[in-house]
């Protein structure tokens, strides 16, 4: 057993400095398209290539609705005029429903319990959420804890488009939570149904069923974006925008 102790000590601290400092390591985020300007043909091609309709057009200006972006990179690769790309990860934003659950209040600023519900997620979102519990991200240092029962949860983390069979469990989990409570939708599927919904078996995201307070876009959102979302939920970070701003000039 002593070997494990030595091994652990030798490994040193791997945990990210975020949110104290921005994480500078590469590969922590796939990035998101920002905006583009182009000729009529280029603009048309970009809008046409986007499989989920995330790219919105006004004149020759293109902006992105992050609720829909699934990181297919079709507006970046093999395109004549690729979209701008932002490699950040502070993507979490308040939704228009924010405040529907009336927020957590300052008493919860330093520590919250999180219950995760898989509403039909593909596994990548779950894997990224699991990383939060692991050395590189270690959410415990920020006062975030996972709980096995919604009865103790302050924040409900939902990934996936909410499949038909998961509607009831999700609703029951939400109802079982004590107030005050927050709902955080993680990933494009949870925000808009992504590539799966709406369909005969999937909803167009969590907000169809229960009010969502914090949205974390991405497919999947990298762990740092989810941490940003949790920090936003307890008002320790400010909200990003769910739509990219236009290109200036």
């Amino acid at each position: 057993m002593s070997k494990w102790v030595i091994k652990g000590l030798r490994t040193g601290i791997k945990t990210t400095q975020y949110p104290r400092k921005m994480e500078t390591a590469s590969g922590v985020s796939p990035g998101l398209p920002t905006a583009a300007k182009g000729t009529e043909k280029e603009v048309q091609e970009l809008v046409f290539n986007c499989p989920t309709g995330a790219i919105e057009r006004s004149g020759n200006q293109l902006t992105v609705d992050y609720n829909y972006c699934i990181h297919c990179f079709r507006c970046k690769r093999g395109s004549q005029s690729p979209m701008g790309w932002d490699y950040g990860y502070e993507w979490a934003a308040n939704t228009k429903d924010s405040g529907a659950n009336r927020g957590l209040g300052s008493a919860f600023n330093r520590s919250i319990n999180i219950r995760f519900v898989d509403g039909g997620a593909c596994g990548a979102c779950i894997s990224e959420i699991e990383q939060l519990n692991k050395p590189y991200y270690n959410m415990h240092r920020l006062g975030f804890f996972a709980t096995p029962t919604p009865r103790e949860a302050d924040v409900l983390l939902v990934a996936g488009p909410v499949t038909d069979h998961m509607r009831l469990p999700l609703k029951k989990a939400y109802d079982a939570m004590p107030t005050p409570k927050l709902v955080m939708a993680v990933g494009a599927c949870a925000l808009s149904g992504g590539i799966f919904g709406p369909s005969f078996m999937s909803d167009a995201g969590v907000s169809e069923l229960i009010p969502v307070d914090v949205a974390v876009p991405g497919c999947p959102p990298p762990p740092l974006a989810i941490i940003h979302g949790l920090l936003l939920a307890v008002k320790r970070k400010s909200s990003a925008l769910l739509t990219s701003s236009e290109v200036r000039g």
Binding site: S26, G27, P30, G31, I70, H71, F73, A124, P135, P220
Partner: peptide, 19 residues
């Protein structure tokens, strides 16, 4: 695992090799 995810991200732009 996380190091491999980051490596995938650096190599291909996506941590789970999407796209």
């Amino acid at each position: 695992e996380e190091e491999l995810l980051r490596l995938s991200g650096v190599l291909t732009g996506h941590r789970y090799l999407f796209g």
